[in-house]
Amino acid sequence: MSNSFKRNKKLAIPFLVPSLLVYIIFFIYPALSGLFYSFFDYKGFSRDKTFIGISNFVEALSDKIFWSALVINLKIMFFGGLFIFLLAFVFLIIFQCIGHFKGTIRALLFLPNIISPVAICILWGFVFNQNFGLLNNILTSMGLENLIVPWLDPEHIMGSLIFVIVWTYVGFYFVILLSGVSKIPDSVYESAILEGASPIQTFFKITVPMIWDVFTVAVVYWLITSLKMFELPFSFTGFKPRMEIWNLPIYIYMLGFGRNDAIYRIGYAAAIAVFLSIIVMIFVQISRKLMSRESIEY
């Protein structure tokens, strides 16, 4: 390891301390206070709190809606992730086969990421609309009416939601993976081609292993994002989120902070948030363990 740092350990401190300070004071400390509410029955409008121990946690475990929200979370995480990374890798291979317009294409792929989720939901709301929606229009004009389903009814809405999620976020993961690819020196590829490797072979034998670190980062980040995803599913069904796509963050919001049919149970919301944090950390740890390997020396 770097001798210079071993000798000057004190250097590490000024590099690290400011971040730690800001992080602890303005995030960890409030977050712990918030999670602390989970041991209380607390409404949020006054200081009155009743200590109820672990009742909130116990209640959550037998709460139907908690479990169904969790299932929805997991579906988004699993199917969304599957399609996003599948597509991202496909784009990666394709990208390396073309010569022109790389910058433009990369930019366009990434673009949906920066549009605010509300606008994306309104856009796709119009596309999926069954009376004047674009999708139905296109299918009809191609003579494929029998493929038309009510895209946003209880049966199909998860599929539509996952499709929109994939469409929005695939560009982001593609760019991350691409930045990993960029660090692979050309010399490696050239020697592979000289030895007669096909693009597919090079992809699996060279590209994938060499971007494994970046890939891990991308996967872990997806796990976290998909489990905490709030705005997109929230706005997906107009402004009143339908219960068919209530995931855990939406449920937490409805419990403590919602309006219209607000429930005003901050303590219970906090308990569920604790569970969510634990679930996220479990997945993060598992995936980091599963995917960890030594950096490739080249």
């Binding site: 709301g125 999926f128 069954q130 009376n131």
Partner: peptide
Amino acid sequence: NGWMGNVWPAGQIAWAQGS
């Protein structure tokens, strides 16, 4: 028909347009 796939306000707009 298909009201279950009407995400607000698609349904009320459709009504306003006479469907």
